[in-house]
């Protein structure tokens, strides 16, 4: 009988989970925001499970401006757009570059920052440049489903491109020596290189960003057709740019202006 009881318990727990997840239609004043939580310094989870980073602070500032409360949902990068479409959250604030392919699936606000991509390599690397010829025959690591992945596959056609689920895994493999170089946002690479784990490696240099691949910068994604939310977010970005809040957050993380020209 005990077994039976346990089974009933499990079934009711499962049913409850279904009902709970089914019943949550969000309150009007809360904005659910999806982010990755594995992309320092923009968004990252601390050891005790707190979300921190530039994206998070910007999101909170925007919510404050829009008089709503931010509710954060962490989601793996390669499933972040499907999760938005499925309604797991209402906006993605996760350093997502505005690209034409993504714009077919979601609507973007204007950019809220734009930093160039760059290449990093082990300290003893003989790499001197970041061109296709420099990297010919090398193994280049990137995070999958990113503009950096698309850029690397399109540009470094003579290199082997390996894609990883998060930035941390390619960092591990670059430190291990499985990779000859990695390609990512310069701020992300610099942040990592400044930590003890990043001691293995050095920055080779920035990569000239390509508009058709990298787009105008990172924007906030909302579901297609939700123009009202998008316009509100756009207005909020303008407002925090104007009232100094943006600069305050910017200076907390960076020594330069990440908004770009």
């Amino acid at each position: 009988m005990l077994g039976m009881k346990r089974v009933t318990l499990a079934v009711s727990a499962a049913a409850l989970a279904l009902v709970l997840s089914g019943a949550t239609s969000q309150a009007q004043t809360a904005l659910k925001i999806g982010t990755e939580g594995a992309y320092p310094p923009f968004n990252n989870l601390t050891a005790d499970g707190q979300l921190v980073g530039f994206d998070i602070d910007i999101a909170n500032a925007l919510c404050e401006e829009m008089k709503v409360t931010c509710e954060f949902v962490t989601q793996d990068w390669d499933g972040i757009i499907p999760a938005l479409q499925a309604g797991k959250f209402d906006a993605i604030i996760a350093s997502m570059s505005i690209t034409p392919e993504r714009a077919e699936k979601v609507d973007f606000t204007g950019k809220y920052y734009n930093t160039p991509p760059a290449i990093a390599a082990p300290k003893d690397s003989t790499l001197t440049g970041v061109s296709k010829e420099d990297l010919a025959g090398k193994i280049v690591g990137v995070q999958g489903s990113t503009t950096h992945f698309n850029y690397s596959t399109a540009t470094y056609t003579d290199s082997e491109i390996k894609s990883y689920p998060t930035a941390q895994e390619y960092q591990l493999d670059l430190a291990n020596g499985r990779l000859d170089a990695v390609n990512d946002d310069i701020s992300v690479l610099e942040e990592w290189l400044s930590t003890p784990e990043g001691e293995c490696c050095k920055l080779i240099g920035p990569v000239q960003s390509v508009d058709s691949i990298h787009g105008p910068g990172a924007g906030i994604a909302v579901r297609k057709g939700e123009t009202e939310l998008r316009d509100k977010l756009d207005a909020a970005i303008k407002a925090i740019r104007a009232n100094g809040k943006y600069k305050e957050i910017n200076d907390k993380y960076f020594s330069f202006d990440v908004y770009g020209g």
Binding site: D78, I81, P82, E101, R102, E104, K105, G141, G144, S145, F149, N150, K162, S163, Y164, P165, D173
Partner: peptide, 20 residues
């Protein structure tokens, strides 16, 4: 596919990530 090998599943994930 999870450890960066482009097998059938790896290619699939890559294709999905690029085209959605």
């Amino acid at each position: 596919a999870i450890i960066t090998v482009y097998d059938l599943m790896g290619e699939t994930r890559r294709a999905y990530a690029q085209t959605f």
